[in-house]
Computed example of a mutant assay.
Amino acid sequence: MSSSRIYGPLISAHSVGDHVPLLTEVFGMRVESGARLPADATAALFATECTTEVVVLRTPGVEAGAVLCRFESELPEAAETIRDGRTRLYRDAFRVIDFYARDFETSLAHARDAGFPMIGKEASYETGDGGFREAHHLGADHVVTAFLHGPADFFTDFAEVRDRVSSEPVSISLPLSDAGPTLAWYERVFGWGVVYEYDFVDASFSELVGVDAELRVRSRTVGPSRRQTYVNIVDYGHAAQGGSLLGCSVAPRRGLLGLVVLTDELDALHARAGDGAQVVTLDLAPFGVVRACVLIPPFSAPHLVVERG
C-alpha cells in the first residue's frame, strides 16, 4: 500500500469562520490548530505574495479532515471563486466533498437543525452495488458538500467512521476533460491506482445538479485504498455540456482549491513529480514541525503534501 494518503480537501476561504461551523457541527470535525504562514512560505508553496491564515480540522479517530486557508491578498483573484452556479459541472477542478451518512434522514435533519439545509432535490439512484441516496449543501465560497447513503455492507469498505451522523470525508469528486494524464500522474507520484468504478443513469441525479438533460455518470475512484479518502474522477457525459476550469484552481482564488496529502516519503514524491516544487518547513499542528511542498497535477489544482512528523 502507498505510504501517502489523502487527508482531505484544501479550501481557500474568504473567512475561515464561514466554513468551521459547517465542518464541525454538521460533519463532526474538530479544530486542531490555527497557524499563520509568512509571506515567503506562502510564495514558496502557492506562488502568491501574501501571508496566509491556516486552520486544520480533523475527524476524531481517523487521519482525515480538512485544511482551510485564508490568503490575505489584495490581488483581484482573491475576490473570485473557482466555481459558481454557472460552472457547477465544468471540468478540471474539484467539485464536491462527500461524506457517508449511516442514517440519511437523521443526517439531513441534523444539518438542517444546525442551520445548513441541503439544497435542491435529493438524488436516488441504483448502481451494481445497490441503491444510493445523495443530497448536497452549497456553502461559503461555492464549496459543495454532500451526504451519501447506501448499503451498510458496501460502506464498510469505503468509510472508516460509520457510527456517527457523518463519516470523515470519503471522497472529493473531480470531473476531468481527459482523465488519462491525471490517472498516470497519481500512479507515478503517489502510487495510487483505481480502487473502484461505477456507472449509472438516473434522472434524479440530473435534477440534483440542476441539469435538464439526462446525465450518464461514469466514475473511476483513485487513492491508496478503498478504505481511505479517495479522488472520485467522474465523467458526466456529453449531456453536461460544461466548459473547463483548467488553470482556475490557483491561490488566492476561493473555493475547493485542492487536496492535502500526508506522506512518509516527501523527498521521493518530490523527485517523482519532477516539477521543481519548493520544500518548506512549517509548524503546523496537529502534524508538528513538518516539511511540506505543493505538487501540481495535470489539471493544475494544488496538492499540499505534508510529511508526517
Rank of each mutant, 00 (worst) to 15 (best):
V306S: 01
C69R: 15
S244G: 11
L10C: 10
P302H: 09
A240P: 05
A78D: 06
S2C: 07
D212M: 04
G193V: 06
M1E: 09
D202I: 09
G258P: 11
L176C: 12
L259Y: 08
G210P: 01
P169Y: 01
G223A: 13
D199N: 06
I296R: 13
C69K: 09
E122W: 08
S167V: 02
T81Y: 10
D264R: 15
V279S: 10
F71S: 06
L10V: 02
I6V: 14
P9K: 08
W185K: 12
W185I: 03
H19N: 05
G120A: 06
Y230E: 06
D202G: 05
T51H: 11
E80H: 05
R291Y: 07
R218F: 01
A239Q: 12
V170N: 00
A140Q: 01
S73T: 01
V280A: 07
V261F: 07
R5S: 13
F46R: 05
A146D: 02
L148S: 04
H303I: 05
T221N: 12
D264E: 15
S73E: 04
W192N: 12
S244H: 11
P169C: 00
V161P: 05
P151S: 01
V289T: 15
L215T: 06
Y198K: 06
V170H: 02
A152W: 02
S167Y: 00
S225E: 12
V306C: 03
P38F: 08
S171V: 00
F154P: 14
E63D: 13
T24Y: 05
R36S: 08
P117C: 05
E197D: 09
I119S: 08
V26Y: 00
T52S: 12
E207Y: 13
I11V: 08
G115C: 12
F116K: 00
R164D: 06
H270R: 07
A79G: 10
A43P: 08
A44G: 04
R112V: 04
E197C: 10
V56Q: 13
R226C: 02
G180K: 11
G191N: 12
H137M: 15
P298F: 06
R86F: 06
S33R: 06
G242T: 09
W185C: 11
G34A: 05
L174W: 03
S204F: 04
E187R: 15
L57E: 08
A285W: 01
I82L: 04
F132S: 00
L37E: 03
S166M: 02
V211T: 15
R188V: 13
E77L: 10
E72W: 06
S249I: 00
S171C: 02
A64P: 10
G242P: 02
G120I: 07
S219H: 02
L176I: 02
A44R: 08
A301Y: 11
A114Q: 14
R102F: 00
L37G: 09
L23M: 13
I82K: 09
F205M: 08
F154M: 11
V222K: 07
G139V: 14
V306Q: 04
D283K: 14
L45F: 15
A111H: 15
G28D: 04
L266M: 04
P76F: 12
L68F: 14
D98K: 08
F158P: 01
V195D: 03
K121Q: 15
